[in-house]
Computed example of a mutant assay.
Amino acid sequence: MLGFREAFPALVATGTWGLVTGIAMVKSGMSETLATVMTLAAYAGSAQLTSLPLLNDGVPLWLIFAAGFVVNIRFIIFGAALQPYFRHFSWPRRLGLGAFMSDIGFVMFMGRYGEARERGDPLQIWYYLGVVGPGWLIWNVCSIIGVYLAAAIPASWSLEFAAVLALLSVVIPLVSTRPVAVCIVASAITAWLGQGLPLRLGLAAAVLVGILAGVLSERYMDKVQRT
């Protein structure tokens, strides 16, 4: 219940982003049925949006999968960070837990348990499920609503901007330490500079640079405190 209570405000951002993704898929020319199948099968908004122009251009399937891999490469890092908490589970269970992982879920989990000395506590798995479970449900429901309402929603509504604002409302309160702030600033600058890179490589670079900046900032602060 704790995970659900803390994740509840973030569900607004998750739902808004899902709605925008559902609308974008249909407006790109995808059928409602195919868009619904993609939503339920993929559960990866950034990869779905990345694939749309590639599908329209008729590029080879392997290139679409490669683009999706690049965009979602951050989840390898997320999985490595979560491994100490869930390593006592069998690999099929860990695979299932990873399938429901989201950016917001990872940030919230690490924000609560990132500094925990005991890892693998039963409360941690229940917290994780309380965060990612409702997020998965809201995402799919809102995305499917977007799929079937796309024809009735004009582009002038600029829902993409509303989705960004909703995500910012979740992320900003989590900036509680200087390393986190450095991480976000470094990621934002890298993402902005990398907008023109193919296959959304700018997003992957932003994730890597942000993590590196956060780690170096934390080490620097530890060194300053010791001296």
Rank of each mutant, 00 (worst) to 15 (best):
L63S: 15
W62Q: 13
V131I: 05
F106D: 09
S28L: 12
R94K: 14
V59C: 07
M38P: 06
A151I: 10
L197A: 08
W17N: 06
G18H: 05
A66L: 15
P92Q: 07
G196S: 01
L2E: 15
A150C: 11
V132R: 06
I138D: 03
E115K: 15
M38S: 14
G135D: 11
L40I: 14
I211K: 01
I73V: 12
G114A: 04
V175R: 07
W139Y: 05
L52K: 09
S90N: 13
I76P: 03
G96T: 12
L168E: 02
A47H: 02
A42M: 15
W139L: 03
R112N: 09
A206N: 00
H88F: 14
V70R: 01
G146F: 10
L168V: 08
I64C: 05
S187V: 04
A47T: 04
A67C: 11
E32G: 07
W62R: 10
P92I: 05
F8S: 12
G130D: 06
G58I: 02
G79H: 08
W91T: 14
L40W: 10
A163E: 02
A206I: 00
L208A: 15
E32I: 07
Y113S: 07
V20Q: 00
T190P: 01
C142Y: 04
F86S: 07
R74N: 01
T177N: 10
H88T: 15
D103G: 03
A67V: 01
L52W: 04
E218D: 12
G214H: 00
Q83E: 13
Y85C: 14
